[in-house]
Amino acid sequence: MNNNFTRRDMLRIASVGAAAATVASPAILRAQSGYPDRPINVVIPFDTGGYNDRLARASAPFLQEALGQPLNMINRGGAGALLGHTFFMQQPDDGYTISCSSFGPYVPLNILTQDAPFTVDDFHMINLPSQDYTLMATAADSDIQDAADVIARLQENPGSLSIGIQPASADLVNLMLLLDAHGIERDAVRLVTYDGGGPARNAAAGGVVDIALVGGQGFLPLREQIRPVLVFDEVDNDDWGGDLITDVSGADAEFVYGSQRGWGVHSSFVEKHPDRYEILLNAIETASKSPEMIESLTNQQLATDWRGPEVSNRALRNTAAVMEQHIDLLAGT
């Protein structure tokens, strides 16, 4: 194209550019001292505005205080958190990149349905304060009374009610387990599929679908527009007043939890840097238990409970195991 432009010129240009850039660069290497000595990145595998994003941003000021370093939020949404989880796993396991995500059920779903390049054991949960559950709800002015009514109608004619639900979700697994428990044919029910919890909830509240099964915590702002029918949990933590799955399908009723959200790190980080892990763990625990953080997050309808690594890891692994059993439900409808 132009023969004046030789390789040597190129090198010269490159070195001049490099020199200029180094002078201009503000990133001066500092001596390594105690962890953390630089800002910590928080990978959120969802877009801005969702529960995890709000949880991370709302917790950030308190965690920053406990850690003494700022937190950088990195939103990597898409593909049901697969892209974000993969990106997180690719970051160095040195404790300078942590994640705030709905690890359950998304990590198991990524693995079971999307061929994810990681396993559940690659993730270590520090604290999963938010444990969501499936709530079956109908519009406030609906003629559906309670769970027994829904089951009776479906037993008589499985297609009589339209059911709003997200495909490949914990909610779908719960619905199918409920149908099985009451002898209702799976393929005969009328599913209406939604891409997100929000649209499915709105459809229930507006009476567009007869009932919807969606994560219960997201229903809280819509409390006045819906009638709670059935809570898929052993306890009614949010005081819905609907039936519990254990009332309807027996004390040993099988069900899965919904989104289990909170803070996680690489499992390899825990092994490689036990000292750093201890610092991070303490910081998250201190912040989560501080009255200021509890007040601030509660006002935003975000969970702050301290459940700790042991309970949190067990919860995630249980979800993964149940999901694996019902892998056949996770394909398209």
């Binding site: 850039a21 990145n41 801005t48 950088n72 939020m73 990195i74 939103n75 990597r76």
Partner: peptide, 10 residues
């Protein structure tokens, strides 16, 4: 923007 670009020099 809320996340870092991979950089070599700057």
């Amino acid at each position: 923007i809320p996340f870092p670009f991979p950089l070599s020099i700057l």
